[in-house]
Design a protein around this nucleic acid. Structure first.
Lengths: 222, 222
DNA sequence: GTCTATAAACAGATAGAC
DNA sequence: GTCTATCTGTTTATAGAC
């Protein structure tokens, strides 16, 4: 497979990779229908025909973008998965949850490079198309299941209970929303960008919320 | 103004209203670029030319949809706003927050009619276009500011502090995510739909999260 | 006001020269 | 592999009959 980030790339691989990056960015920003193959080719400094040559067509490029994201995420997530396999104390698990929240903030909210990944995923999430299946089973389902598992280690509540699964969706959603509603957040917060500083603030509050949930479980409500 | 829900509608008003409803639904589900004027006219059982006649064109219809949503929300929210104006005890404010969470779940998550509104808003939120300004200043900003205000009444923390504003975005986000990631939620939860029953479950857990935040503030962390 | 026909621009896909 | 030219279909907008 020819992808960005390799040591050496043949000219063909460079074109392929440039198309992939351009597709990732434009599909993420403007949606599948909102993006024309001509735009993609222009951004990649390639000709229109190259999309058909390398990917078979627009839909093929779109699917290749999804695959690229899933592979990238899996290569990053592999060490994190190993970490989970080991049985942990509730305290370690709680710390693991907090780290997970921080990672999610880093991935979805902070604006640099990866922002394109996040937007592509969110778009395919809200408008499921042919690429949804790969995104879901390759990235969303494993990540969510892992969070549920750590939650069980931290609280004793069963990982696959209805409440746990919903709660983990909420934990993700409260953070991801800052990317989805980015423009509204910028106005309301009077920020000009959501960069590392802003991500830090968001992560701290999200971790604080998590803390409230965890202590609520340690000290039963009166 | 000619809108659905009136007592009598002239034929022209009926056409206009039908186009508005069709636009709302299709723009919400498939996005602006993903929707053709032909589809809209077909769903509204009107001819293509009527869009230009009544709204000046596709973009005009899109803006009219945004205006319609804002007006509808404002007419619903007016009583809620009056309710807030009165000074409340922390307990009343806390109850008001919980009711707000339940309303947000009802509006964004439960699938019937209003679902089109929610999706239209979320789409304009994540891909800001010409209609964003109206949605933001007409619906998002006032709602968010109101929540911040109630939060102050409930906790004593300043409504317009950075932390409060972020926290209220998170309160909304954790719920709204169930609409955005609807397809992923359906699979992971093994639900076939997110209807009233599922909305009830989601609302209860979201209110529980809120409770954890509020008690965390009453009983300072040890 | 409604409807049809059509114009003008644009889409994605493809054939063939290099 | 790359690039250009072109085909075919679809888009929105519009002109004009009714």
């Amino acid at each position: 497979m020819s992808q960005p980030g390799q040591i050496y790339q043949s000219p063909a691989e460079q074109t392929r990779a440039a198309l992939l990056r351009a597709g990732l960015r434009l599909f993420g920003r403007k949606g599948y229908e909102g993006t024309s193959t001509r735009e993609i080719a222009a951004l990649a400094r390639a000709n229109i025909g190259s999309i058909a040559y390398h990917f078979g067509g627009k839909e093929g490029l779109h699917l290749a973008c999804a695959d690229f994201i899933v592979e990238t995420i899996q290569s990053i997530a592999r060490p994190a998965l190993a970490e989970v396999a080991a049985v942990a104390t509730p305290e370690d698990a709680a710390a693991g949850l907090k780290r997970s929240v921080e990672r999610i903030v880093g991935f979805f909210v902070a604006s640099p490079e990866v922002g394109d990944f996040a937007q592509f995923i969110l778009r395919e999430l809200s408008v499921p198309g042919p690429a949804f299946e790969r995104i879901y089973s390759g990235a969303i389902q494993p990540t969510h299941a892992r969070l549920c598992h750590i939650w069980e280690q931290a609280t004793g509540e069963p990982a696959e209970s209805e409440a746990t699964r919903i709660r983990m969706f909420m934990m993700i959603g409260q953070v991801v929303y800052f990317r989805i509603a980015r423009e509204a957040v910028l106005r309301r917060m009077e920020w000009t960008d959501i960069g590392l500083d802003e991500a830090r603030i968001i992560a701290d509050i999200a971790v604080g919320n998590l803390d409230a949930l965890l202590t609520q479980r340690k000290e039963p409500p009166r």
